[in-house]
Simulated assay, not measured.
Amino acid sequence: MFPKKPSPKPRGVPLDDLEAALAPTTLKATRKGDALIVVNDNLTTRVEVEAPDNPDAGDAVISAIVTIKTQLPSQLAALTGKPGFANMINRMATLGAVTEESGQFYIGSRLTVYEGENAWDVQFGLILFTIIAAADTMLGAMRRTFSSEPPRKSEPSSWTEQDFRFAQEQLSRICVCTPGGLSLTAEFGLRSGELSAAVGDRHTALWQMMADQPHPEMGSGLFCLLNMPQTFEDENKLSSVLAELNRMEMKGHDLPPHFGAWCVGGRQNNPAYVAFLPNALHSSRGIALNMSIWAMNRAQIADAMLRTL
Score class of each variant (00 low, 15 high):
H282Y: 02
T160N: 02
E19W: 08
Q75T: 07
A205F: 05
L309Y: 12
A302I: 11
S192V: 11
V39E: 12
Q170D: 14
Q170V: 14
V241G: 07
R267A: 15
M92D: 08
D53W: 01
A135V: 05
M138G: 03
Q162E: 15
A211R: 03
K69W: 03
F166H: 14
E169R: 14
F124A: 13
S283T: 15
P55M: 01
A23M: 10
F232Q: 10
S63H: 10
Q162H: 10
L195C: 08
G81N: 10
N40R: 14
T178N: 08
G200M: 08
T45L: 06
Y106H: 10
A243M: 01
N54Q: 11
D59S: 15
S147F: 07
V61D: 04
R247F: 15
V199F: 10
P52R: 03
A135F: 02
M291Q: 09
N90V: 05
A21I: 05
F166G: 13
R267D: 15
A86D: 06
I287T: 00
E217H: 06
F164K: 09
A275L: 04
G219D: 07
I62K: 03
I89T: 05
T160M: 04
L111W: 04
G58E: 02
Q104L: 13
G140R: 00
A272Q: 06
I65E: 01
D201C: 11
Q162D: 15
A29S: 12
A51P: 00
P3F: 09
E50S: 00
K251W: 01
V176E: 00
T160E: 04
S239F: 08
R152F: 04
T44K: 11
T185V: 09
H253P: 09
E161P: 06
L182E: 06
A275R: 13
R11H: 11
P229C: 10
K4M: 15
T67A: 09
E149C: 05
N118G: 13
T178I: 03
P52F: 06
P6Y: 07
P52M: 09
F85K: 03
R173H: 15
M88N: 03
M250K: 01
T26S: 14
P214M: 12
S240C: 00
A304E: 15
A97R: 03
R285D: 03
L79T: 07
G116A: 08
L255Q: 10
F166R: 15
S102Y: 08
G81L: 04
M92K: 08
A295K: 04
D121Y: 01
T99S: 09
A64V: 02
D254L: 02
M305G: 10
N270H: 11
L184T: 14
G125A: 13
L126A: 05
E115L: 12
K5S: 12
P55W: 03
A93V: 07
L182G: 14
Q168P: 05
K82A: 12
E244H: 02
S240G: 02
L76Y: 02
P278A: 11
A86L: 02
E233V: 12
T70C: 11
L36G: 01
P179A: 13
P8H: 08
